[in-house]
């Protein structure tokens, strides 16, 4: 008779959450952002419902500005899981040609991601959406429930959250309202990496160091991933050994110089790092309490 390690406990709890959410919703969907947390969440879903396929589709709210490696991983994930993949691009943002270079990161994120997500959820009438957020990522996440209730306008009211006791989740809602469910709530960044290592979960190669063309802007290394990147006068991309701690839109993701090209090596680098993973993510710096504000507006 053995007892579970902390990682086994986390896995069991996440599977429990996934099953409970599916059993109590009409039209669930999994928000799939192609990052390492999404890969772990997808892996857990495949375990939770095995030998059935996870009984919900994957939804990618596309901004058209992801890394090319990410699009390749997205197709692979859909193929290997056998799940339906829904790709939503905000038609308004598409028509206006919204991009981070001309419109700034705040507008870009709001139009493509926040508005795009609301559109997709409304369009498909999803009443429950899984997200890969972790409580250790950011201060306002630390207070979010596992089952987080949203109004018909997709709004989050941090003062009116349902208490969550034991493992009893209140999943009741009225028509039009929805629930965001975070199966990875209690995982830390280290747990995620460790689990990827233990379970051999595929990840986008950008997490591992390789020679890549980058330019330095305001002290941040940005990868020139395709020909849309507007180089400034005299700016020439340099090839450097870099990797990414978090992945988003390539113009908004800061690379770090690194030689860590294996999982244990990047875990080592992360453990010895002196900054949090969100520092490489440019959108958080827009304003203080910016994440909480975005969440209240409907961002994941």
């Amino acid at each position: 008779m053995h007892s579970l390690t902390s990682l086994q406990r986390l896995e069991a709890e996440s599977i429990d959450i996934l099953r409970e959410a599916v059993a109590e919703s009409e039209r669930p969907v999994m928000l799939y952002s192609i990052g390492k947390d999404s890969q772990v969440m997808l892996h857990l879903a495949r375990k939770a419902f095995f030998p059935s396929r996870p009984p919900f589709p994957l939804l990618h709210v596309d901004t058209t500005w992801k890394f090319r490696d990410m699009y390749a991983m997205r197709e692979r994930a859909a193929r290997e899981s056998g799940m339906d993949l829904i790709v939503h691009k905000n038609p308004e943002a598409e028509a206006l040609g919204i991009n981070p270079f001309t419109h700034g990161s705040a507008k870009h994120t709001d139009m493509w991601k926040t508005q795009g997500l609301k559109q997709a959820l409304d369009l498909h009438r999803f009443d429950l959406a899984f997200g890969g957020a972790r409580r250790d990522e950011e201060k306002s996440r630390a207070k979010e429930r596992v089952f987080s209730f949203r109004s018909a306008q997709h709004q989050w009211d941090p003062k009116n959250q349902r208490p969550e006791l034991w493992r009893l989740y209140n999943t009741r809602k009225n028509p039009g309202e929805s629930i965001r469910v975070f199966p990875l709530s209690n995982w830390t960044e280290l747990d995620i990496w460790q689990y990827i290592h233990r379970e051999s979960i595929p990840i986008v190669p950008l997490y591992l160091a390789a020679e890549r063309p980058v330019v330095e802007r305001d002290g941040v290394l940005i990868m020139v991933d395709d020909e849309r990147f507007p180089l400034r006068l005299g700016e020439i991309p340099k090839h450097k050994s870099v990797r990414f701690r978090t992945l988003g839109c390539y113009p908004l993701s800061g690379a770090i110089e690194s030689d860590a090209n294996t999982l244990p090596a990047i875990i080592r680098e992360m453990l010895l790092a002196t900054t949090t993973e969100r520092q490489g993510r440019l959108i958080d710096h827009d304003s203080s309490a910016s994440m909480e504000k975005k969440k209240a507006e409907g961002y994941f």
């Binding site: 390690t5 406990r9 280290l190 460790q194 233990r198 244990p264 453990l271």
Partner: peptide, 13 residues
Amino acid sequence: IEQYLRTHENKSL
């Protein structure tokens, strides 16, 4: 690092 990972994985919560 591999030894560290094994140790960390076996930590109690």
